[in-house]
Structures are given as structure tokens and as C-alpha cells.
Lab assay of single mutants.
Amino acid sequence: MKKYKITVYDEKTGEKHTIEIEMSEEELEELAKKLAEKHNVKVRIEKV
């Protein structure tokens, strides 16, 4: 498992949230996809 920083940005409201999380790359990609689809936000992932 690796550490990642996830930034979620909502273009409508301008809200931006960043968290650090430790998980596998596959789980992370699935999480990012679900966030983007369900909440209509942009998701950026960076390795820490």
C-alpha cells in the first residue's frame, strides 16, 4: 500500500477538499471514479 493525496474539487460551489490516504492503487482508482460519478466533482491524485 502506498500513501496518496486526494484533492476533490466541486466546480459549482468552488469547494476544494484534500485528504491523505493509504491504500492500493486499484482501490484508489475505484474510489476516485465513484467520487467523480456520484458527486460530479473533479478528483486529482498525487503520490506522497
Score class of each variant (00 low, 15 high):
M1I: 11
M1V: 14
K2N: 15
K2A: 15
K2W: 15
K2I: 14
K2L: 14
K3F: 08
K3A: 08
K3N: 10
Y4A: 01
I6T: 00
I6D: 00
T7A: 02
T7D: 02
T7E: 05
V8G: 00
V8A: 03
Y9V: 05
D10V: 04
D10Y: 14
E11T: 14
E11K: 12
K12T: 13
T13G: 08
G14H: 07
G14N: 05
G14E: 04
G14L: 06
E15Q: 10
E15D: 07
E15F: 12
K16L: 13
K16G: 09
K16P: 03
H17Y: 14
H17C: 14
H17A: 05
H17R: 07
T18A: 07
T18Y: 09
I19E: 06
I19W: 15
I21L: 13
E22N: 06
E22S: 07
M23L: 13
M23E: 01
M23S: 08
M23F: 03
S24R: 09
S24T: 14
S24F: 13
E25V: 08
E25C: 12
E26S: 10
E26W: 10
E26N: 11
E26P: 11
E27C: 05
L28I: 10
L28A: 11
L28V: 14
L28F: 03
E29Q: 12
E29A: 11
E30Q: 11
E30W: 09
E30M: 11
L31I: 06
L31R: 01
L31F: 14
L31P: 00
L31T: 04
A32V: 14
A32R: 13
A32W: 09
A32H: 06
A32M: 11
A32Y: 08
K33N: 08
K33V: 07
K33P: 01
K34I: 08
K34F: 09
K34Y: 12
K34T: 09
K34L: 12
K34H: 13
K34G: 06
L35V: 03
L35A: 02
L35M: 05
L35C: 10
A36K: 11
A36D: 04
E37V: 05
E37Y: 04
E37N: 07
K38Y: 08
K38G: 10
K38R: 11
K38P: 07
K38F: 11
N40E: 05
V41Y: 07
V41E: 02
V41T: 11
V41S: 08
K42Y: 05
K42W: 03
V43G: 01
V43N: 01
V43C: 03
V43S: 01
R44V: 15
R44T: 15
I45C: 06
I45G: 01
I45L: 02
E46F: 02
E46C: 14
E46K: 02
E46T: 04
K47Y: 15
K47T: 15
K47D: 15
V48Q: 04
V48F: 04
V48N: 02
